[in-house]
Design a protein around this nucleic acid. Sequence first.
DNA 1: CTCCATGTTCGATGTTCGTAGAACAACGAA
DNA 2: TTCGTTGTTCTACGAACATCGAACATGGAG
Lengths: 135, 135
Amino acid sequence: MAAMKQARHPERDEITFIAVVGAFCDPIRIGLVRVLADGRERGWGELRAPVAKSTLSHHLRVLRDAGVTRTRQEGTRCYVELRRDDLDARFPGLLDAVLAAAGSDDTGAHVGLAGDAPAARPESCNPSTQHVDGR
Amino acid sequence: MAAMKQARHPERDEITFIAVVGAFCDPIRIGLVRVLADGRERGWGELRAPVAKSTLSHHLRVLRDAGVTRTRQEGTRCYVELRRDDLDARFPGLLDAVLAAAGSDDTGAHVGLAGDAPAARPESCNPSTQHVDGR
DNA sequence: CTCCATGTTCGATGTTCGTAGAACAACGAA
DNA sequence: TTCGTTGTTCTACGAACATCGAACATGGAG
């Protein structure tokens, strides 16, 4: 995989409030959480955020270390998903309230999935023009 | 009052998710919010936090600027209270979820009111009898 | 008016955070 | 093996932040 060592995820009981809230403090990370809010696992490559890949990797690490997401590796790819079950068990209602609040405020709207807003191209595997959009 | 200029509080509609979550990121501020969670207005002097008064002033300002608390001045004293109504209206369920989460984690436990906290204040006595009955 | 108590603001300091580019590591394909 | 893809880690830098002490401003008490 792109990562040599599989970062460890905190156990459910090791998830702390401060770490979780800290993870929610950044618009990029909130956007990522919102993208993952439907419960589906997403590939790294699907994620679209207006930052360098190293920065995106950093944010995903913060989310993972806080126990907000779970990262899985398969071949050269990484897949990320929300740890909704653990978060709901640890802090009941917190995730839902945060998602609702962020949604009503449209926080993190500049984060999305590959092929969304304008003319959503359902073409999944299309390695042609992979130009970095940037905004 | 101790403050020459009355800082303005954001209107309900001006409260943003990021500002609120940012205010919740610090243990001291979470402790303050927890102390105010019972809905009662508290005097500045009642608050007990392990920081310098200028630092406490700073944290109270962050909370106020974020729209989390409301500060009122009377004479030389300041009184602070939680803007629960506005927060609940703006972000339903968020405050309750945060309070529950912080409570279960005991985040900000080192913040309290005059006349309770078990440790760390052997000789708190001030000339002026600051006896607060407390709860 | 002159102290004194109460907070705010300013200046300084050390730390954390978000960000990006470059180097690196691991897997799949040619 | 060599190359291309995919992420992670390293390093660096500027901005933001938490913290404190000192100076200041305001209102009440004497």
